[in-house]
Nucleic acid binder design. Structure first.
Lengths: 213, 213, 213, 213
DNA sequence: TATGAATGAGAATTCATTCAT
DNA sequence: CATGAATGAATTCTCATTCAT
C-alpha cells in the first residue's frame, strides 16, 4: 500500500521555509547544500529527492519570491478596469506586497535580492512576463485613445523607466519612503498626460522623475 | 642593500590593475586566486606576499574603489567654502567621479558594485566615514544658522536619504540620467530651505524627491 | 493462502527481460538500480525483493546468458553418441545458439559480453563446467582409443585452445564469418587425427588453425 | 630561484607507473582518483596538478600503451622497404611488442585492454592512424603493381580483417600461440597472391583465414 | 623575492541499500 | 507485496593556503 506522495510538495515547501530561516540568520550568500540539509534535519542526499540540483533549489527559491506577484499580475490583467486604473493597480498591487515583505524583514528582503542577482534567469523571466503584461495594458490604453502617435514598444519601455522606483526592489530598498502609492499615482498621471508621440525624445533629457507632492 | 619597500606597494597596485583587467573581461564573480595569479604572470604563492589572503585582496580592491573618493572628501572638508557650497561640493565632486567611471566602463562599474556587496565591511567603513564628514559639514551649516531646531544626527540621516540617487551607486546605475549635478543642486536647495525642526516627520510623506527640470 | 512462490521467479524473469530491453537501447555500462527499477515500473526498494543486491542482479543476468547453453551441454553429455560426434555436438550446438543471438541483436550480444567481463566469476563458473564436460567427453574418446599416450588435462587444454574461435564469444564477435560449423568440423577432424602423445609441443608451431574452405 | 619544472613529466610518468603497479595487483576496473593518489603517496588534489581530470589520466594511460607502437609504425612507414616487406614489418614489429608485453604480465595486458575498452576514443585514434598508415603502404604496393583492379579502401579493410589475429589484442590474448610471425607471413603471402579485383566479394564468404602449415 | 609542490577541507552529486508503513 | 523516505559512503573536482627551496 503505497504511502500518499502528496507530501512531496509540502516537504519541498518546508525545506524552502527552513532555508528562509537560515537566510534570515546568516544572509543568502554561499550556503552549501549540506548546510541547508543540516538545517532541515536531513541528509544532503535526501535533499536531492526534492530538488534536482542546487541550481534547481535556488530557482525554486527565486520562483517562490515571484509566485504571489505573478498571481497578482494575472488577476489584475484579467480584471475589467479601464486601462489607466488597471495600470495603476498593476503596479500598486505589487508594490504593496513588496513593501509588506520589506517591512516584515528587511534583511530577508535583501537576501532574496541577492539570490535574484545570482540567478538572474529566473528574475529575467519574471521581468519579461511583467513587460508582456504591461504591453497588454498599454495596448488597451491605446484602444481607449491614450498614447496617441506612440509606438507600443517605445511606450512600454518609457513607462518602465519612469516606474522603476516602484518596481525595482533594488531601488525600492534604497528609496523606501519615496516608493509610495501616492507617488506612483503622480508618476502615472504624468505619464498618461504627458506621453504623446510628438516628442518622445525629450523625455530622455527631461525630468523623468518629477515626483511631486 | 634592501631596496625601499615601496616596490611592494607598486606591485600590489599592478596586481590590482591586472585584476581589474580580468574583471573587465569576465565579471567579478568567482575568480580564484590562481586565476588572478596567472593573469598577473606570477605564482599563486607569490600573491600571498602581497595580500595576506583572498579576503584581504578583495578588501584592497574595494578600498581601491574608494581611494580617490576618500581623498576628495577630505579635500572638500578641508576647504574654506561656506557650508552649503561645501555640501554641494561634497556630493557633486564624488558624483562626477562615479559618473566618469560608469561612463568609462559600465560593466566594470557593476563588477565593483558586486565586490562591494560581497565585502560590505569595506563599503560600510567608507559610508561611515562619509557620514562622519557629512556630520561635520552639517555642524558647520548649523553654526551658520541652517537647520535650526534640528538634531544633527537626524539631519544627517535625512539628508542622506534624499541624496541617495547621487550617492548610492546601486541607484545611480538604475537612474543614470536623473543623477545629475543639476538635480543634485535642486535637492540640496530644497533641503536647505525646507529642513527645519518643526515637522521632520512630514518628510516621510512629503515629496522627498522633488527633482525638477 | 500463500500463492506458490513461482511468481517470484516469473517477476525476476520479467525484470531481467526489461533490463535486457534497457541494455538493447543504451548499452550495458553503468546503469543504476534506480534506472532498472524505473524501467520495470517499480520502486528501487522493490527490486531488492527479487535480487539481494545489484551484484546478485548482474550475476543473474550473466547466469541467464548461460542457462540455455548449460542445458544444452548437459543434454549433449547425456546423449549416446560416439565420442567424436558428441564432441562435435558439444561445440556445434552452443555455437548455433550464440550465432543466433548475435545475429538477432549484435549490440545486445556485445553488452552481455561486457557484463561477462565485469562479472567474470559467473563466466568462470560456466567455463569450468564446460571444461569439466569436455574432460568427460575426452575421457570417453580415450576409452574409444583416441588421443593415445596423451594426458587428459593436456588434451583438454589443447582442444580448448584450438576451438576458441567457435567458443569464445569475444573472438567470435571479431571473426564472425569464420566461426562456422564447417570450420569447426575441420578443426575437430584435425584434432582427432593429429593429436597424439608423441609430439604435443609441435602444435605450438604447427598449423593450429588450419581452417579451410 | 624557481625550481626546475622538468620533473613534471617525470612525475606524471611515475604516477602512471604506480598506477600500473596498482593495476597489476587489483585489475583496472573502477579505481578512484583517491586510490591512485594514495598509492602514489600523495593527495588527491595533487594528482590534479598532473592530470586535468580522471578522464585525462585514463587517456594518458591509454596513450602510454600506444606510444611505443606509434613510434614503431612511423619508423616502418619511413623505411625504404619494398611494399610487401614493409607491410610485413608493419604488422610483425608491433606484434613482437605486444607479445613481449603479454608475456611479461598477462594480467596487466588484460587490464590495459579493459582501459582501452572503456576509453575507446584513444584506441580509436590509434586504430585510425594505423589504418591510415596501412593505406599508405597499400598505395605503395599498388604502385608496385599489387592488388590490381582493387580499390584502395576495400583492400585496406580486407587486409585488416584477415590480419586481426595479429593486430587485435583482444583476439591475440585468446589465441596466443597462433598469433605468430610465421602465421602472419603466411597470411600476408596469401593476401598478396590472392587479393585481386576480380572477385572481391567472394572473400567475404571464402576462407578469409586460410592460415596454413 | 618568487617558485613549484603539496595539502586539507569542502563543494556538488550519485548510488546502492535499508526500513517503516 | 510494494512504496516512498531516508541515508551514508563514495566520487570527482576546486580552491585557498602553506612551505621548503
Amino acid at each position: 500500500m503505497p504511502r500518499p506522495q502528496l507530501d512531496a510538495d509540502e516537504i519541498r515547501n518546508s525545506i524552502m521555509e527552513t532555508a528562509e530561516e537560515l537566510i534570515r540568520q546568516r544572509g543568502a550568500v554561499d550556503f552549501s547544500v549540506s548546510e541547508i540539509a543540516t538545517a532541515c534535519g536531513m541528509s544532503q542526499s535526501n535533499l536531492y529527492r526534492y530538488f534536482e540540483s542546487k541550481e534547481a533549489f535556488y530557482e525554486a527559491m527565486a520562483g517562490r519570491w515571484f509566485e504571489e506577484l505573478n498571481t497578482l499580475m494575472e488577476e489584475t490583467i484579467a480584471s475589467e478596469l479601464p486601462a489607466k486604473e488597471k495600470m495603476f493597480a498593476f503596479f500598486a498591487n505589487r508594490l504593496a506586497i513588496k513593501r509588506a515583505r520589506f517591512e516584515d524583514d528587511p534583511k530577508l528582503f535583501e537576501s532574496y535580492m541577492e539570490i535574484g542577482h545570482q540567478h538572474f534567469e529566473v528574475v529575467r523571466g519574471y521581468i519579461d512576463l511583467a513587460d508582456h503584461y504591461l504591453a497588454v495594458i498599454v495596448a488597451e490604453a491605446m484602444a481607449e485613445g491614450h498614447f496617441e502617435d506612440m509606438e507600443i514598444d517605445h511606450t512600454v519601455s518609457l513607462i518602465n523607466l519612469m516606474v522603476q522606483p516602484f518596481c525595482n526592489p533594488d531601488i525600492m530598498m534604497n528609496m523606501w519612503p519615496t516608493s509610495t502609492d501616492d507617488n506612483l499615482r503622480i508618476v502615472l498621471d504624468t505619464i498618461f498626460i504627458g506621453l504623446k508621440g510628438k516628442s518622445p525624445v525629450k523625455l530622455d533629457v527631461a525630468p523623468d522623475l518629477r515626483i511631486a507632492s
